[in-house]
Simulated scan of single mutants.
Amino acid sequence: MHKKVRDVMTTEVVAVTADAPFRVIAEVLTTRGVSAVPVIDGETHVIGVISEADLLHKEGLREQYYREDYRPPSALSDHTGGRDAMEKAHGHTATELMSAPPVTIEDGSSVVNAARVMHEKGVKRLPVVDREGRLQGIVSRRDLLKVFLRSDHDIACEVREEIIEGLLWADTSGVRVRVVGGVVTLSGWIEHRGDARILLRMTERVNGVIDVIDRLEWTEDDIPG
């Protein structure tokens, strides 16, 4: 069934502490080849995320507003976004430079939910935390795509063994499964229409399944009109 974030996340995570200085953070991003790192407190709770963009505020605004004798217009300090950028431009530690509150995902969440959060928040990776907000790993878009790389054989085996044969209250001996390119076709017969619907919905939730084609026949319509 649906995998959890803990099943696909990367557990070897580079993080920085709240008091980490600008130079150390920049070095971590560069040497580790990552574009962002979580910021943690002494108990490994994730309190923020710092990215290349956060660091670039310092050099970018210094170049834009402080060359020679120029000073930023007063209106800038009245604008929320501008004020945030200015604060980061003057920041020296992770606490002053990070974006907070952080966008995180619990390790017990489904990969589907993680993908939804990434899309809604416009981020490419999420720090993974436990229920207390402590850092457990990090999950990226690439990690989420791994669930769609299963072979057709593996998908077919799971559908047969865990779904069809797992429907213990119904005779599923007449149900057949075919998987091509992640598309599952369920055909054959089953006694009740309600059980056919259950098989279809459960098959849709199997990791790696792209689509389900319903070719099942049933002998009794037990779904009220």
Results as ranks from 00 to 15, higher is better:
115 A>R: 05
115 A>H: 05
116 R>N: 10
117 V>A: 01
117 V>P: 03
118 M>V: 06
119 H>Q: 14
119 H>M: 13
119 H>L: 15
119 H>Y: 15
122 G>H: 13
124 K>W: 08
124 K>H: 13
124 K>A: 15
125 R>Y: 12
127 P>W: 00
128 V>F: 08
128 V>M: 06
130 D>H: 05
131 R>N: 15
135 L>W: 10
135 L>T: 09
135 L>Q: 09
135 L>K: 03
136 Q>V: 09
137 G>K: 02
138 I>P: 10
139 V>S: 11
140 S>Q: 10
141 R>F: 03
142 R>K: 14
142 R>G: 05
142 R>Q: 09
142 R>D: 07
143 D>A: 01
144 L>C: 04
144 L>F: 08
145 L>W: 06
148 F>A: 10
149 L>R: 13
149 L>Y: 01
150 R>T: 02
153 H>E: 14
153 H>D: 12
154 D>P: 02
156 A>Y: 04
156 A>G: 03
156 A>I: 07
156 A>D: 06
157 C>Y: 03
157 C>H: 05
158 E>C: 04
159 V>F: 13
160 R>Q: 13
161 E>N: 14
161 E>K: 14
161 E>T: 07
162 E>W: 15
165 E>W: 12
167 L>M: 11
167 L>I: 00
168 L>M: 12
168 L>E: 14
169 W>V: 15
169 W>K: 14
170 A>Y: 15
170 A>E: 13
172 T>A: 00
173 S>R: 14
173 S>T: 15
174 G>L: 07
175 V>S: 00
175 V>W: 01
177 V>F: 08
177 V>P: 00
178 R>M: 14
178 R>H: 15
178 R>P: 03
179 V>H: 01
179 V>P: 01
180 V>A: 08
181 G>E: 07
182 G>L: 07
184 V>G: 01
184 V>L: 06
184 V>A: 01
185 T>N: 05
185 T>H: 13
185 T>I: 04
186 L>R: 02
187 S>C: 08
187 S>M: 02
189 W>K: 11
190 I>G: 02
190 I>M: 09
190 I>P: 04
195 D>Q: 08
195 D>T: 12
195 D>M: 08
196 A>I: 11
198 I>L: 12
